[in-house]
Amino acid sequence: MKKINEFSIWLLHWIEVIMAIILILVVVIQCFDIIAQLPSFFFNKVPLSDVLSYVFNFIITIEFVRMLLIHSMESVTEVLIFAIARSIIVGHPEAIALFFEICCIFLLLSARKYLLFENELEKENEEDQ
């Protein structure tokens, strides 16, 4: 039974790595596509919300890949914060939805500051350096 559990964990880890690699390849391909479309953004007067949507999608995807590879609460909260921020900026929510989204960001930032263990934050800082 222990070998099955170890194999399952190993297999799931490599599936996550493969998914991260696929997402990185998609982001790189999409970057080339956006660079090719850059003149049309300027000359066709594409709305800023469309450009922001592209940018936030890239940021969220990159943070999601980081979350797949690092497995920390810090990376999970960052992905959630970026996803909610994208919804606020690009989605143009109604007043009540905007209020709840801002409350969610506040709660996530508070949780990140006050509830994450100090040793986890120190460990992540050491990994970044």
Rank of each mutant, 00 (worst) to 15 (best):
L25V: 10
V28E: 03
I29V: 10
I29A: 13
Q30H: 12
C31E: 13
Q37R: 15
Q37V: 06
L38V: 14
F41V: 12
F42A: 11
F43S: 15
K45M: 12
P47K: 07
P47E: 11
P47V: 07
S49V: 10
S49G: 05
S49T: 11
D50R: 09
L52S: 05
S53K: 09
Y54K: 15
F56E: 05
N57K: 11
N57E: 11
I60P: 04
T61C: 11
I62L: 04
I62K: 00
V65F: 01
V65W: 00
R66D: 04
R66G: 01
I70G: 09
S72Q: 10
E74N: 13
V76C: 04
V76H: 04
V76G: 04
T77D: 14
I81N: 01
F82R: 00
R86C: 08
I88E: 05
I88V: 15
I88P: 02
I89T: 04
G91N: 03
G91S: 06
H92D: 10
P93M: 05
A95I: 13
A97C: 08
L98T: 05
L98Q: 05
F100S: 05
F100Y: 06
E101C: 07
E101D: 13
I102T: 06
I102F: 01
C103G: 09
C104K: 00
C104R: 00
L108N: 01
L108Y: 03
L109N: 09
L109A: 15
